[in-house]
């Protein structure tokens, strides 16, 4: 039972590194961005996991109830911001990929590199 309490962190580590693998090993620019967004999502899981409290509920205070336990609001606030940052980076990255496709005719890194070398 104790180990289940750490399962979230293990999934965080695995998902984080799965995304990281796509970023460093794949040559396709869109695949890299997909990897990058998985990589960022893993961090969301880390933060939300640390905010959980046993027997708690979402931090919306109910009137008249005094003995309710609430989960930690701060990590949630931070991750709301981080999600926004993630989608912003993704949008900008995709726009650059579209322009790369238009000027090079490909979105594979090795093909772009060989085109640059030959020019």
């Amino acid at each position: 039972m104790e180990l289940f309490g750490l399962y979230n962190y293990w999934v965080f580590a695995i998902v984080l590194m799965t995304g990281f693998y796509a970023v460093i090993a794949k040559g396709n620019f869109i695949k890299r961005l997909i990897g990058l967004s998985i990589f960022q999502s893993a961090v969301f899981l880390l933060y939300i996991t640390m905010g959980k409290v046993d027997g708690g509920t979402a931090p919306i205070i109910q009137e008249g109830v005094t003995d309710q336990v609430y989960s930690n609001p701060l990590p949630q606030v931070l991750i709301l911001t981080a999600i926004v940052v993630g989608i912003s980076t993704l949008a900008l990255g995709l726009a650059i990929v579209v322009r790369i496709k238009e000027s090079y005719g490909t979105i594979e890194e090795h093909e772009v590199q060989s085109l640059d070398r030959s020019s």
Partner: peptide
């Protein structure tokens, strides 16, 4: 994990 606001955002975004 009791993060309703974040769940809503992640689903929409």
């Amino acid at each position: 994990l009791d993060a309703a606001d974040v769940a809503l955002t992640e689903a929409a975004v």
